[in-house]
Nucleic acid binder design. Structure first.
Lengths: 332, 332
DNA sequence: GCGCCTTGCGTAATCGTTTACTCACAATGC
DNA sequence: GCATTGTGAGTAAACGATTACGCAAGGCGC
């Protein structure tokens, strides 16, 4: 039961070669005969030998591991991105360490510290910070920032949030809305700001004045959004459309409207953002702006791999913008 | 920019002590004076030195890291468990590597291999396998199996699924249902089987015959569940209650019923399982059996920590059963 | 037959820690 | 005053891999 873990030395002894040869065979580095290879592989197989990746990392100074930091893994949008990242980077031989920052800067820093101490080769980061300069003063690991765009971020993968905001608002306008409530996240992430810009842009394009009182803030939760919309709809009876910062909030808005006896989409039309699963399941199904989580993973992995390869040279920062699209359902 | 990473040797030199002392100070192992401690800590602070955890793990043969394997991180129930595990184990100084097995046995094995190679100290595992004997022949790491109960699992943390099935069914019976459809997951995990046992048990307790044609299988997805229920409700007009294997399926069932013009809960009553967020948001809100994800994390961490501490001695397998509770909402 | 390349291996240094031994010195007990 | 104990440190040997370097033997061209 308590068998000592085998090391390369054991394998070398058991197969009558040197440990250098064993290493070469395991890494397929050449300089050995077919015959020895077979013998050694045989011994490895039979003995159940397991390479010690810690030793390997120590020696080679690469860990074949990346860190992924997300604000909340129970948020379906983030979970889907994580899944996509794993899907694209595992075939390249990397392991992923997922960290949940719980939207807290200090936890975020703690995670970065341990990731650095573990010697991860790179990080994909959905950061809660407004400015990430401190992080880069602290550690020098390739980082790709995704979804949100903090100050001093190098490489980036973000959705085209402004266009998203524009498409949503334009859609509402074309459907006849003239008094469109914009329900935005209280936090001022770039995602939020850009969606607002799109909202304003659409108004300009269609020669509608932007009424600042129609831009309302709430927490990023169903409950808070519902509360805020209940309030606002009672204060302002002219509202005929709502564009929400994300689908959870949109759901809150939807239910607030229904609770007040509004008919959806006749009295009020609603558009969300993200295109998570509930949007198809809720009643009525929610019109929304789809973000391509698969492409998020794919692009960020692509860029990170490139950065890690060129680690020594100063890599150039890359920015990838992921297109969004309007998905029309029943709330508009 | 390209500063060489500092090691303990550098710190030792810079502060004029030996590297042993530096190590002792970092690990607070005693055998140094307050005075030297201050000096060394100062140097460390100023130089931005980062401990190399790979070297440490290599030397000590423990990695302060655990692996968590889940079938699908985008499933809110699993994501919440992961979050809870992190919450309870991070304060103990452990990092978590989350692996998504995508419900595939081979991916599961691949993950276990890398986790073993990385030298994780323990694993918390929601396994897709029916039997995990092979795994334990392969590696000898403490593992706590949670949620599902495979054959040859050692330590376990599972919900009281049978009681859950019983409570759900009893509730339906008490509300007047006599022809209760049980919509079960196609896969035959222990969770599924036990919920069925509860369903049968409640029938017996209330002297109702179990009609096998009322036990219907479907994939664990909204769409598949909806499809199956649409079909079944058209075939059998006598059905007046539905107990579903999880909330996503229950939502499918709910919408199938609504689509057929049934009034909920007047014509048909529905109960789900898990208590994920949508159950409160959907329309009408779903009665369900709540699983305590927080306790799942807490218990499994507790047991795993114990197993890791007693690694050398043969630890005794522990089984923790998490209580479930009925949450009554509007579908019943 | 001589130089030179290639192939197939082995030797030993190295990565950054931890820790078992030392050891000097001071304090304490009797 | 002498044995004992405790304190603050240093030396060096691991941990398990990778890899630069060395070397022998065989093949090849000329």
């Amino acid at each position: 039961m308590e068998e000592k873990k085998l090391s390369m030395v054991d394998i070398a002894k058991l197969s009558g070669v040197s440990i250098a040869t064993v290493s070469r065979i395991i890494n397929k580095n050449g300089r050995y005969s077919k015959e020895t290879e077979r013998r050694v592989l045989d011994v490895i197989e039979k003995s159940g030998y397991q390479l010690n990746l810690n030793a390997k990392s120590l020696r080679t100074n690469k860990s074949q591991t990346i860190g992924v930091i997300v604000p909340d893994i129970t948020n379906e949008f983030f979970a889907k991105i994580v899944r996509s990242i794993e899907k694209y980077i595992m075939p390249k031989g990397y392991t992923v360490i997922v960290c949940d920052s719980d939207e807290s800067e200090s936890l975020e820093n703690a995670h970065i510290s341990t990731l650095a101490a573990k010697g991860v080769d790179g990080i994909i980061h959905i950061s809660t910070c407004a400015d990430v300069k401190k992080i880069h003063d602290m550690v020098s690991i390739p980082v790709v920032y995704i979804d949100r765009r903090p100050k001093n971020a190098g490489s980036l993968v973000i959705s085209d949030n402004e266009t998203g905001g524009f498409l949503a608002t334009e859609h509402l306008i074309k459907k006849g809305c003239r008094r469109i409530l914009m329900l935005r996240d209280k936090n001022s992430y770039s995602t939020v700001r850009h969606r607002c810009l799109g909202y304003v842009g659409a108004h300009e394009q269609y020669s509608l004045a932007v009424d600042q009182t129609l831009i309302v803030e709430a927490e990023v939760s169903y409950a808070s959004a519902k509360q805020a919309v209940l309030q606002k709809l009672q204060d302002d009876r002219t509202i005929d459309g709502i564009f929400c910062n994300n689908d959870n909030m949109a759901l809150g808005a939807l239910h607030a409207a229904l609770e007040l006896g509004k008919r959806i989409p006749d009295d009020i039309k609603i558009v969300g953002f993200d295109d998570i699963a509930i949007t198809q399941i809720c009643n009525p199904p929610l019109t929304t702006i789809r973000q391509d989580t698969d492409l998020f993973g794919k692009k960020s992995v692509e860029i990170l791999l490139r950065m890690m390869k060129e680690k020594s040279k100063a890599f150039t920062d890359e920015v990838a913008v992921i297109p969004v699209s309007l998905v029309v359902r029943t709330t508009t």
